[in-house]
Amino acid sequence: MPDPSAAVARLAGAVKRYGPQRALDGLDLALQRGEILALLGPNGAGKSTSIGLLLGLIRADAGRVELFGRDPQQLAARRHIGVMLQSAALPATLRVGELLRLAASYYPHPRPLAESAELAGIADLLGRRYGNLSGGQQRRVQFALALCGRPRLLFLDEPTVGMDIEARQKLWAAIRRLRTEEGCAIVLTTHYLEEAEALADRVCVLARGRLVGEGSVDALRAQVARTRIRCLSDLDATAVAAWSQVSVAERDGDRLRIVTTAAEQVVRRLLDADPALRELEVQRAGLAEAFTELTREVA
């Protein structure tokens, strides 16, 4: 186990209230070097508040917030990070190259401008005015600004919103490259679960300001080890629902739909009980199901 003191960013017992509402209710979160962490959760779960604390934009009411062992409100701590926020209107009349040059000037050892542009796939846009770019191109420019300072920790808030599939794949490739080649840690918030599945080493699911699930994508899926079974059968749904390890059984026209934690046993018993059973489908729950399950338990 890595020592928590070696974390690049850490929340310990962080509490943030807005009026009577607790946006964060004692959250513990530590991010290790070179790790890609996805923060998931429904709206209002506390994702933005967590990021706001780690970026020093807001102050915690209680608990500790550390960025490279320092207060994130210190400039020296933030010189190691890159940021891509969900909504930030960059000056429309500046050219892409000018924006990059400005962002790079904030950092002690920035990348050469051409390297940042190449990594983000905007080398052909440097001379264009930001306001004349498409939404997806603007997102790529924002990504270039985030990585231009050779960050050791990158915050990406909904990075691929408004991008087409190809652009999204390219951005994912760039994110993986930053991690493997430079050991850059990444905090990612996203609504696209496939994005978390494709990139994240670890997923943290938040709900109502608390951590309700944590682990690798596989571990999280296993934590909600549910499988869906569908088949054409005359068996009585209420009888099946009473079988051990069946959590749901219901009829949908001719089809019987079952949710279980022990697919193999249930399938064997189904086939025994109804030799005429046809069109059997067995499907493992995805991250989406696991996510819904985890956040529903809290709600």
Partner: peptide, 14 residues
């Protein structure tokens, strides 16, 4: 209003 100041405050801009 448009989030530019927030981005700049998050970045290490003096």
């Amino acid at each position: 209003g448009d989030g530019l100041l927030m981005l700049k405050r998050a970045m290490p801009m003096p």
